[in-house]
């Protein structure tokens, strides 16, 4: 297990981020924090992808400057797209949260459920 920490450190960190993200999404009663949790989960996936493309001693994928080995550019491209899509997702989710707050006067999941029952 200890040897994994020295050879697979980024994968372990991204798995820990999955766990923390899932915990925040499920455990936090506050809707804004749930969205932050979703972002943490996403960043865990991004870290995983970018790590798969890394090569020891590789240069950043900018060719024509004399380097021989490069890290794989494809995971970088996929993650660039994913980051932008993630921000769009966050924006829509936060807009929905603001509307929920206008309707229920609270961001607390439990209070919102109570208001629904009372109606």
């Amino acid at each position: 297990m200890i040897d994994l920490l020295t050879t697979h450190y980024n994968y372990i960190a991204s798995i820990l981020l999955f766990g923390i993200g899932l915990y925040v999404v499920m455990g936090s009663p506050n809707l804004v924090k749930k969205i932050i949790g979703m972002n943490i989960f996403q960043v865990g996936i991004f870290l995983f992808f970018v790590t798969t493309g890394y090569v020891d001693g590789g240069a950043p994928p900018v060719v024509g400057h004399g380097e021989e080995t490069f890290v794989s550019p494809l995971p970088h491209v996929l993650i660039l797209t994913a980051i932008v899509v993630g921000v769009s997702l966050t924006a829509v989710a936060l807009a929905l949260v603001i509307r929920i707050y206008d309707g229920y006067g609270s961001l607390d999941e439990d209070v919102i459920k109570e208001v629904q029952v009372d109606d």
């Binding site: 960043v43 890290v71 993650i79 980051i83 921000v87």
Partner: peptide, 18 residues
């Protein structure tokens, strides 16, 4: 991890816009 493009985007979009 030698991913400068992703790092710039994460810093600007992840840490900034979000």
């Amino acid at each position: 991890l030698r991913a400068p493009d992703v790092a710039l985007t994460e810093a600007a979009v992840g840490a900034g816009v979000t």
